[in-house]
């Protein structure tokens, strides 16, 4: 962890200038519980994310962080409480679920690019078939985002020909092509070789600079310190502590948080 925090701190990020809305709620999770059959994985989750906020969720493995963000675009179903995304409450109604998913991008730990499609096809599939955008326009948008993640020259290759870091940047670009208002990151750098973590984090930082509403599950504490305006610590399916990064890292309150931080920051 430590060597990565050094690499990202080099960059002087303009977080102070980023606007967080006071009134516009992007995601509202109210009294949410989830069970895997009898196992109570998420317990009484309450989380309000304002438009433009950048939230990092940390915690030991098995604490329910991934499950929580996967509930936000209904890759997982919750059993109790409410989840309201962009004003739409997630229920079993498939139409609502698709409405929410169109507006919420997600980046996975293992990239999950479509291996049988070229990079460009990966990026244009959903804009063409979900948004109904003409192919030429979708391709122009795709190239724009590929340039943004700095790999336009890979457009006609297949995912299997790219390095892990490049694949993850493509995955981010693929989400951005849908012009989402919220981005979810599920441990985006955990499956990468150490040399490739930085290139992915840089893309995420530049997204944050543009004011994207982001929730990141990550172990990159350097990234959290630099980009987040709130850090949430979870354990055993519950939110244990949350604070701004400054206070979270320098002055943790809960015993469990202190133990966690002492174990990962050495």
């Amino acid at each position: 962890m430590s060597q990565v925090s050094e690499t990202t701190v080099e960059r002087n990020i303009k977080t102070s200038g980023m606007q967080v809305s006071k009134t516009d709620v992007a995601i509202d999770v109210i009294g949410m519980h989830k069970w895997y059959s009898d196992f109570h994985v998420l317990r009484d989750i309450n989380l309000k994310v304002m438009r433009g906020e950048r939230i990092v969720i940390a915690g030991p493995s098995g604490s329910g962080k991934s499950t929580l963000i996967r509930c936000i675009n209904r890759l997982e179903e919750h059993q109790e409480g409410q989840i309201i995304v962009n004003g739409t409450e997630l229920t079993a109604d498939l139409k609502r679920i698709d409405d929410v998913r169109r507006e919420v991008g997600m980046v996975f730990q293992h990239f999950n690019l479509f291996p049988h499609l070229t990079i460009l096809q990966n990026l244009t599939l959903a804009p063409i078939w979900v948004r109904g955008i003409p192919k030429a326009e979708a391709e122009a948008t795709a190239m724009h985002y590929l340039e943004r993640v700095k790999i336009p020259e890979q457009a006609n290759k297949f995912p299997g020909q790219l390095s892990g870091g490049q694949q993850q940047r493509v995955a981010i670009a693929r989400s951005l092509c849908m012009k989402p208002s919220i981005m979810l990151f599920d441990e985006p750098t955990s499956a990468l070789d150490p040399e490739m973590v930085k290139e992915v984090l840089e893309v995420m930082i530049s997204l944050a600079e543009d004011g994207m509403t982001m929730i990141c599950v990550t172990h990159e504490m350097g990234f959290a310190r630099q980009v987040a305006n709130r850090v949430i610590f979870m354990d055993q399916g519950q939110i244990i502590e949350q604070n701004d990064p400054e206070n979270f890292f320098s002055n943790p309150q809960h015993e469990r948080t202190k133990l966690f931080l002492s174990q990962i920051l050495h």
């Binding site: 890759l75 698709d98 997600m106 999950n112 690019l113 979900v130």
Partner: peptide, 9 residues
């Protein structure tokens, strides 16, 4: 999941 998260039905 990747397909679903992009809003593909």
């Amino acid at each position: 999941e990747a397909g679903a998260s992009l809003g593909l039905g």
